[in-house]
Design a protein around this nucleic acid. Structure first.
Length: 579
RNA sequence: GCGCCUGUAGCUCAGUAGGAUAGAGCAACUGCCUUCUAAGCAGUGGGUCAGGGGUUCGAAUCCCUUCAGGCGCGCCA
């Protein structure tokens, strides 16, 4: 739908440019008019040209529309036109050679509004039914390699709902990018080298001794969650009192490794049960072991971007837009967290990704400039690194905030929410907002199978259609799909054309969602589409005595189902046949 | 103090790379189930897009500023 208009405009502009003499033709912006009365699709290209051409926008729009119209008719044979030096007729987009536009009008300050003929909608609907998802996806990525790193929670405790939101967004984004022709790698970065995992190990060690009856103090700022005790108990079961009379220096390695691996396995399971898997789990520790951290710093040193000051090693990040330089090796000789992050992001580049997307909690936003400067130092253009910030989730229960405090160990885990509410609902709700927008998540409301719950609204539309098909089959054996599609011309009700139009808008929504890395656009679209279907369903009967019309309407239902399922798949949410 | 994000209907939020008369859901009110799933539909009301300047054919959107809220500003991770 978009393509036809863009092509028409582009060719027309090329033609007109013989008079205008511009160096290049501007980008052609296409939009769906807010108001149905304004047409099916519109372009603002005339307004955009006012500055360049120094003419009023409506005047330019007139020139464009005149040029389009004079080139529609007469439909001379292509060869004749070409020998004439004129462009081939470009509005015969219909497969039978019909004009695809019903009308082309100028409106407002200089919009050009296009209205398609019914035949065009029927033809496009048929394509959708035949090609299914290949007609819904755009090749935006063209095989570009993109890496998306998300969740990357410290393996020092269970995932909380905030991680869940990041997981849902990251997962959906990856689905979308893959469908949009990107080669995507989903990655989880494991902070298994720092002080935090060591502190976890120490916490488990202390609980272990306490459980065995030793009166030893719990580490300051240690992890106090119940899971720490569970791990300690498990160690007692497996190893008994083997480590009872040893200092943490002696057996800390065991406790630390055991504990974080345990937590990591938990995290992986939580994510799996949430319906999310990763292509790669990258260990920070491994970066050290393979010498990547040392190498990355060496690389910076060769570029003369490191310097020594106050007994520490600094990276000249201000040279790349950071507001202060950052320490990479501390006075005590230890690497900073930033050092391994530099190595990690360099490693991503070395692995050949064209674009790197990091999904972080919004509280890490201050970290962006330094990572950006590190990547810039290694030669990655600014626009190839993108950070998506995930805002906090405010968890509520019947409107009352549920407090989350990792310190006390009394925080609500992703698992608790998923177990109580369900994975589909949780994911969908996480995807109903822009990532960087605050999100209220009311557990009780989410659990209610009510109209307050948008996920049911969308799934219900899908299930309803499935039900219609079950009914249709019971009534009588229908012809095959190809036969039914012959009847599409019978779809002439306003609601039917609106629905088809909405279906044909999906690729634009999808493309926008991929380019902007905003999965929620699909969520909104699905709610709108489901709404239009419910409305149609209530006004018109699909199955009737009119066999042809029934077939046509079944086709329309099928198409709605295809798009609903495609969209839900992108979000990682299931499309149930029954509800 | 500096930086980033946010401020849109009573509530929760969209607003598609500056576009037309700013939208949806919820809440409130009124109707619709002996026919394909009422987890649904139809209808009604609801706005100083936080305030003020500016940029231009045109601003919720871009710039400046004020106010309010959130989050960052370690040789922590």
């Amino acid at each position: 739908m978009k393509q036809e208009v863009v092509e028409t405009i582009r060719k027309t502009l090329e033609l007109l440019n013989r008079q205008w003499g511009l160096d290049s033709i501007p980008d052609i912006d296409i939009e769906i008019p807010k108001n149905e009365a304004m047409g099916d699709i519109a372009t603002t290209v005339a307004m955009g040209l006012t500055k360049i051409l120094k003419k009023p926008p409506r005047k330019i729009a007139e020139e464009i529309v005149d040029a389009i119209k004079t080139n529609i008719i007469p439909p001379l044979p292509v060869a004749m036109l070409r020998s004439n030096g004129s462009p081939a007729p470009f509005l015969k987009g219909g497969e039978g050679g019909f004009d695809i536009f019903e009308s082309i009008e100028i409106a407002g300050p200089g919009f050009i509004n296009f209205r398609f003929r019914k035949e065009f909608f029927h033809q496009e609907l048929k394509k959708l039914l035949t090609k299914e998802h290949s007609s819904l996806r755009t090749d935006t990525g063209k095989g570009m390699k993109v890496q998306v790193e998300f969740v990357s929670a410290n393996p020092t405790g269970p995932l909380h709902v905030g991680h869940g939101r990041g997981a849902a967004v990251g997962n959906a984004l990856c689905n979308i990018l893959k469908a949009a022709g990107f080669e995507v790698q989903k990655e989880f970065y494991i902070n298994d080298a720092g002080l935090q995992v060591k502190l976890l190990g120490k916490s488990v060690w202390a609980r272990y001794l306490q459980l065995l009856g030793d009166d030893i103090p719990f580490p300051e700022d240690g992890y106090k969650g119940d899971y720490v005790e569970s791990i300690a108990k498990e160690i007692i079961n497996k190893k008994g009192e083997e480590y009872r009379n040893k200092s943490f220096e002696e057996c800390g390695g065991f406790f630390t490794t055991y504990a974080y691996k345990m937590m990591l396995a938990n995290i992986a399971k939580d994510l799996k049960d949430f319906g999310i898997t990763f292509d790669k789990w990258q260990s920070e520790k491994e970066l050290y072991e393979k010498g990547h951290v040392q190498n990355a710093l060496q690389n910076l040193r060769q570029k003369e971007l490191l310097y020594e000051k106050d007994g520490a090693m600094w990276f000249n990040s201000t040279g790349f837009g950071d507001d202060k330089d950052r320490v990479v090796i501390k006075q005590d000789g230890e690497y900073t967290y930033f050092a391994s992050d530099i190595a990690y992001h360099k490693d991503k580049l070395d692995r050949g990704f064209d674009t790197i997307i990091d999904i972080w909690g919004a509280d890490h936003h201050g970290y962006i400039p330094r990572i950006r400067s590190a990547l810039a130092a290694f030669g990655l253009p600014k626009e190839k690194f993108k950070v998506i910030l995930i805002q906090m989730v405010a968890l509520l229960r019947r409107g009352v905030p549920v407090q989350m405090s990792k310190r006390s160990g009394e925080f609500v885990t992703l698992r608790e929410v998923v177990d109580e509410v369900g994975a589909d609902i949780t994911k969908f709700i996480f995807l109903t907002r822009r990532a960087d927008s605050h999100l209220e998540f009311d557990i009780e409301v989410a659990k209610e199978q009510s109209s307050e719950n948008p996920v049911f609204y969308v799934q219900y539309a899908f299930a309803r259609i499935s039900s219609i098909f079950r009914q249709a089959e019971e009534r009588k054996g229908q012809g095959d799909d190809e036969d039914k599609r012959q009847c599409l011309a019978l779809l002439t009700e306003d609601e039917e054309l609106l629905l088809i139009k909405k279906l044909l808008q999906y690729p634009m929504v999808f493309e926008g969602s991929a380019i902007s890395c905003e999965p929620h656009r699909i969520t909104y679209y699905l709610q709108e589409l489901a709404g239009m279907f419910h409305s149609y369903y209530n006004k018109h009967r699909v199955i009737s005595d009119d066999a042809g019309l029934t077939d046509a309407r079944l086709c329309l239902c099928k198409a709605v189902q295809i798009v609903l399922k495609e969209g839900l798949n992108m979000l990682g949410v299931s499309a149930p046949e029954r509800m």
